[in-house]
Nucleic acid binder design. Structure first.
Lengths: 217, 217
DNA sequence: GTTCCAAGTAACTCTCTGGTTACTTATTGC
DNA sequence: GCAATAAGTAACCAGAGAGTTACTTGGAAC
């Protein structure tokens, strides 16, 4: 190691840190303004790096956008994986997660709006979906989820119910009269989703006593 | 009328038509690329008018964007109003409507992403929401919709269920394996929504025979 | 018919912005 | 040590794109 030991705080050169800084700044900028609205100079300034570096590491603006999206996708997957099997995986939980990680929701929105047919990191994402579907089928077998519902439709519906308010904050406000970040709205939505979860369980048999916290994954 | 009768097809001047052309072209452009991505010159070319006219009628790019959104909002409201009380107002119906009028969904998405606090045409939209809520309460009174669900939450949920796939076509594809416009996907989604509609009716009492087509508004 | 304004055109400007050139300096393999 | 290469800087550039200037023309009012 030629790196001066004991002076870890200010290494003259640090590609890893530079790359990271760019990605963090770019996520903020792209999430806030989208691809077309984002400004490369702004990202560079925010990251406190020279603009040239950005092109050095990511080629061009589009390359950077893709890198940011790719990174967010894998982060999100890693995070989701850690809590599989955890009983707190409910609609309410995912709803709260979406509200807290607006960057994620917004990046997906920008992606969807630009959508030209091909999806970034398609393979990994398909695998992630497959794992999610498996978990839904398990819940169906355990009688926590109505079996005559198509797992894929269930999954799409879960995403709808949990992400929509964060994706359309203005509609949330218009319809409920409260801002997305209003704790009252949050609480009411979570309670509502709890009920919806109950509705989605098999009608016949054990209705009313099964652990509410566990109906979804 | 000094306008040459019988030669309606080619009036030398026609402000109404020019305005209209600009709005139509602008809707396409903004819907496709968003505010930042849209190009004023492109809109002008598409509308076959001189760019200067665009500024003449709408002030600037932002004014045009607002005009487009405002127009779409009122069109949509007028349209929605004509079918109140119509039995075909179901989740499935609204879902199909969202898929067919992607411009609407996308404009709302752009609006939500730019969302800075203030909403265009807030007053009218609030009134429209209020009318929708009233209809939901009516359905609750008639026993078509569970009464222990908050009408506002129901409405937000309706929007979620019906608009989400159109708003996130890439997720739709990833999760269901089919494109938004694939008739198979459409059919499956409509069927699924029918079931969801059933689930949302009061548990006790008349379950199973009530007209499926009418549970929502 | 002539005045006056809205409708319309063509060419222009000037800033913003993605991307580059030409350079310096640290690090690493030998 | 010393090339060779990667990390980093500053100034620059060309083109795009929003908005304007300066002008012409149709048509309605009087």
């Amino acid at each position: 190691m030629a790196k001066p030991v004991g002076n870890e705080s200010a290494p003259a050169r640090n590609p890893e840190r530079t790359r990271e800084r760019i990605l963090v700044a770019a996520l903020k900028e792209f999430s806030a303004k989208g691809f077309a609205g984002a400004r490369v100079d702004f990202i560079a300034r925010r990251a406190s790096i020279n603009k040239r570096m950005l092109y050095h590491y990511f080629g061009d603006k589009e390359g950077l956008f893709k890198a940011v999206l790719r990174r967010k996708v894998s982060q999100r997957q890693a995070w989701a994986e850690t809590l599989s099997g955890d009983p707190s995986e409910t609609l309410g939980f995912w709803f709260e997660a979406a509200c807290k990680d607006m960057d994620w929701v917004r990046m997906l929105e920008w992606e969807g709006l630009q959508h030209n047919g091909k999806i970034i990191d398609e393979k990994e994402r398909l695998e992630s979906v497959a794992r999610g579907l498996k978990r839904i089928r398990q819940r169906q077998e355990r009688g926590l989820l109505s079996s005559d519902l198509d797992p894929r439709q269930i999954m799409l519906t879960m995403r709808s119910l949990t992400m929509f308010p964060a994706a359309f904050p203005q509609l949330t406000r218009l319809i409920t009269g409260r801002a997305l970040n209003d704790p009252v709205f949050r609480k009411e939505r979570v309670e509502f989703l709890k009920k919806i979860g109950l509705f989605l369980r098999p009608a016949r048999g054990h209705r009313g006593k099964t652990n509410v916290v566990e109906q979804f994954s």
